[in-house]
Amino acid sequence: MRHVISLLIENESGALSRVSGLFSARGYNIESLTVAPTEDLSMSRMTIVTTGSDDIIEQITKQLNKLVEVVKVVDISEAAHIERELMLVKVRATGKDREEIKRTADIFRAHIIDVTDASYVVELTGNQGKLDAFIGAIDPALILETVRSGVCGIGRGDRVLKV
């Protein structure tokens, strides 16, 4: 089962390696991991997308909680939540492809944020499925490079992850 785990961690050097080291040492999967400081600069928020049986996910959250610098851990995928990921795609855009890519980008409500006479950079935000669908809709031969931010997640409504 896929799970999205959000955590607050002290914003100190080495904190990220404690988390990533835990996953590699215990053989847990990381599908994606994103981290950045919160509005309170002394803390960072991390979103980890992982897969595993219920037992493994239970151990992951317990082990994360055990890390001294981790302040709070929540499996946000246990209830209603929102996931977003940012993707930048550089595509070859010449001849008739220019118009086709523009049309596809519009359909996906993506933005073209860099234009040269031979390429576009397309910016797209959404859940993983939407980003995958956009990649699928573009001729693979036209894709020069893609970069994805990894998933950010937040609980819906009253569910708040805060100290």
Binding site: G14, S17, E69
Partner: peptide, 14 residues
Amino acid sequence: TVGITRPCVKHNFL
């Protein structure tokens, strides 16, 4: 040292 010992300490500091 902090990197080498990280997996075998409760916590470490530099």
